[in-house]
């Protein structure tokens, strides 16, 4: 790539790099939305709270805990401690709540089995199981398919499709921008054609150069997007640090970064080849 990064080529390189940056950033954002939606859905569907009405006191809570151990859909159940309740109140209410100020609690937190049947009557099954154990209770919070169930999945799908479409648009932009490299190399195509280069030789030369430029731009754009993503994670996630980041990132999260140089190289190569092919055709045949 003689003088590859001078003048027009340098501008082209950064155009491609920023297109890749935008596409990868959208991909990473979609991946973040997907993970948040998955976590939200898991928390929404795998959690329930019951309030023991009778018998009162510690015996009632213990009986309810024993009955829930045998109840369908229940993975685990434990009485809510005053400390846990205070923490939740602080989180929801925002104001300081002290555990010792709270009255005796009759709440039991339940972790439900994953992949519940959406048509299952969780509420009814839990109340029935508690009644069998001689406990009267009502369910304060339980999964409800009618209350926005599946919305998170649709949001995640929309984010992924949106990012995919955006990446496609960026690939088209990269492909069109790479045609300018072929235009810049038009005289080279003409000279090669005059000197007897075949279509594949002349077009391949330009296509390979554009693909290499796209590959490097893909690495640069991907690196910029990756750096931006890490910075946002560090700033936005409480308790996140350089040490904890590796454990927070899944291999799947890196897919946009890994795909970026390859897709950019392909898009740039295809665009430049198409333009070079046209120039070769013009140089090869007059009349």
């Amino acid at each position: 790539m003689r003088n590859a990064l001078s003048g027009v080529e340098r501008a082209l390189f950064w155009t491609l790099a920023f297109a890749v940056f935008a596409a990868v950033a959208a991909g990473l954002a979609a991946r973040a939305v997907d993970r948040l939606a998955a976590n939200y859905e898991t928390e929404r569907t795998n959690y329930a709270i019951v309030r023991v009405l009778a018998p009162e006191g510690r015996e009632g809570v213990a009986a309810a805990e024993a009955a829930l151990a045998l109840a369908p859909h229940v993975s685990s159940a434990a009485p809510m401690t005053a400390g846990r309740a205070a923490a939740l109140l602080r989180q929801w209410g925002g104001s300081e709540v002290r555990a010792q100020d709270l009255p005796p609690l009759r709440l039991i937190e339940i972790e439900l089995e994953p992949a519940l049947d959406p048509t299952a009557d969780i509420n009814g099954d839990i109340v029935a199981a508690l009644a069998q154990g001689g406990v009267t209770a009502d369910v304060v919070q339980a999964p409800d398919a009618a209350g926005g169930g599946g919305l998170a999945g649709r949001v995640a799908a929309a984010a992924l499709w949106g990012a995919g479409l955006f990446a496609l648009v960026m690939a088209i932009i990269i492909s069109l921008a790479a045609r300018s490299l072929a235009a810049r190399r038009r005289e080279l195509v003409t000279v090669m054609t005059d000197l007897g280069a075949t279509h594949d030789q002349a077009v391949g030369r330009i296509g390979d150069e554009a693909a290499l430029l796209g590959f490097y731009a893909g690495i640069a754009g991907g690196a910029m997007a990756g750096f931006a993503g890490l910075s946002i994670m560090l700033l936005a996630i409480p308790g996140a640090s350089v040490e904890t980041l590796p454990s927070m990132i899944l291999p799947m999260d890196l897919a946009p970064l890994i795909a970026a140089p390859i897709v950019a190289a392909l898009a740039a190569g295809v665009g430049a080849r198409s333009a070079a092919s046209y120039f070769h055709g013009q140089a090869a045949r007059l009349g």
């Binding site: 005289e187 003409t190 000197l195 007897g196 075949t198 279509h199």
Partner: peptide
Amino acid sequence: ASLKRRIGYVAENPVFVEQW
């Protein structure tokens, strides 16, 4: 294309890679 490589051509207005 192979035949073309055996023909040397000097154009009236030769085209070069100008930066080279």
